[in-house]
Computed example of a mutant assay.
Amino acid sequence: MEFTHFNENGRAHMVNVGEKDDTKRVAIARGSIKMKKETVDLIKEGLIKKGDVLSVAQIGGIMGSKKTSDLIPMCHNIFLTGADIKFNILEDEIEIQASVFTFGKTGVEMEALTAVSMAALTIYDMCKSVDKDMVIDNVRLVKKTGGKSDYIRK
């Protein structure tokens, strides 16, 4: 197996994608943050002192997707054509889904994963004063289209 992120001297480098074709690319990632039922209730009732948790987490997730190349060393700076975050509120958990879109030479999987992570971290930050037992869990890529191959998690 050849590692793509090392140059001929064995040093890290960013892969050159200049010769690749531009294609429509989409990535969807999911994750969750588990918490006490009482914390979920406070979020639903708008009683978390720091504000509207899910609105802020949605913005945090989208901002995270836009900053991925600043956070992950070998990620390309990608012009995103769209990003969205959705939440599914359960009894003791909030499920998070990020969808990220571009038209370009490289995929947006890392941007979708970063969006989910940042949304979850934002929820954690806003609720940590009332729930120290929260757990961010199961962040994963569920779908990617565009480029040489598509992927759907079974």
Rank of each mutant, 00 (worst) to 15 (best):
M1H: 12
E2D: 13
E2P: 09
T4D: 12
F6P: 05
N7Y: 07
A12G: 14
H13D: 08
N16Y: 05
K20Y: 02
D21G: 01
R25F: 00
A27S: 07
K34E: 14
K34C: 11
D41E: 14
I43M: 13
G51S: 12
A57W: 02
G61L: 03
S65R: 02
S69H: 15
I72E: 08
I72R: 06
H76W: 04
N77C: 09
I78R: 08
A83H: 01
F87H: 09
E91F: 00
I96D: 04
A98F: 02
A98R: 02
V100N: 08
V100E: 05
F101K: 13
T102V: 00
T106W: 01
E109H: 01
E109N: 04
T114Y: 05
A115N: 04
A115T: 02
M118D: 11
A119D: 03
T122C: 13
I123E: 10
D125F: 11
K128Y: 03
K128A: 01
K132D: 15
D133S: 15
D133V: 03
V135D: 11
I136Y: 07
D137R: 15
D137A: 15
V142F: 06
K144P: 01
G146K: 09
G147I: 04
K148R: 15
K148V: 08
R153N: 07
R153T: 00
K154F: 00
